[in-house]
Design a protein around this nucleic acid. Structure first.
Length: 185
DNA sequence: CAAGAGATCATCT
DNA sequence: GATGATCTCTTGA
């Protein structure tokens, strides 16, 4: 399947988050190719969204979100984990989609060895886990998804029903914390 | 199965 | 100096 075109990422963030379900995340890592079907995302829609890092203003960390859609935003949190996000919308509108969960469809053994864990269950069903399994870290921050290292392949719409819920782990976001900006299959 | 603690550091106050 | 878009392991029912 072809890489998603730039225009895909320039759409409204909530739409991108929903339409990313079923698409395929690809990482051409030094150790081998990894591919995974996206099954869960969250939208962080802009500076007014208190759960969005960009609501704090334009800083070195959030700089990439202020750029054009179609780039990777990878940040470090809780002292241990990297989170993989996809920047959306046009330059000047800071927003992104967090990829929370995938199903590995290629490179399973590499993913397991990257996780350094015995139980291959729950391999990539969380944002920290999928970054570890796919070997994604802050060195990939700002990467253009039109490149050949990390990108998203198009795929037919999912057959499963798309469900929504409030986002996870953002109790501090006041009236934004209950908004149904999480999408999953 | 549920609940709790610990790991560990970039970023902002 | 506090906290977070998290995960794993341990404990106890």
């Amino acid at each position: 399947m072809a890489k998603l075109p730039r225009n895909f990422y320039l759409q409204p963030t909530l739409r991108v988050a929903e339409e990313l379900l079923g698409k395929v995340l690809v990482h051409q890592s030094p150790q081998g190719k990894l591919r995974g079907r996206i099954t869960e995302t969250e939208a962080y829609i802009g500076p007014e969204d208190l759960a969005c890092h960009a609501s704090k203003g334009r800083t070195p960390r959030t700089e990439i979100m202020f750029g054009k859609g179609g780039h990777a935003y990878v940040y470090f949190i809780y002292g241990m984990y990297d989170m993989f996000n996809i920047v959306t919308e046009k330059a000047g509108h800071p927003a992104a989609v967090l990829v929370r969960s995938v199903e590995v469809i290629e490179g399973f053994e590499l993913a397991v060895s990257n996780r350094k864990i015995k139980n291959p269950k729950n391999l990539t069903n969380g944002p920290g886990k999928l970054c570890q399994a796919f070997g994604i870290d802050r060195s990939h921050n700002g990467l253009d998804l039109k490149g050949s290292t990390i990108f998203i392949e198009d795929a037919p719409p999912p057959k499963e029903k798309i469900l929504t819920s409030p986002r996870i782990g953002i109790d501090y976001a006041k009236e934004w914390k209950d908004k149904p900006f999480r999408f999953f299959l």
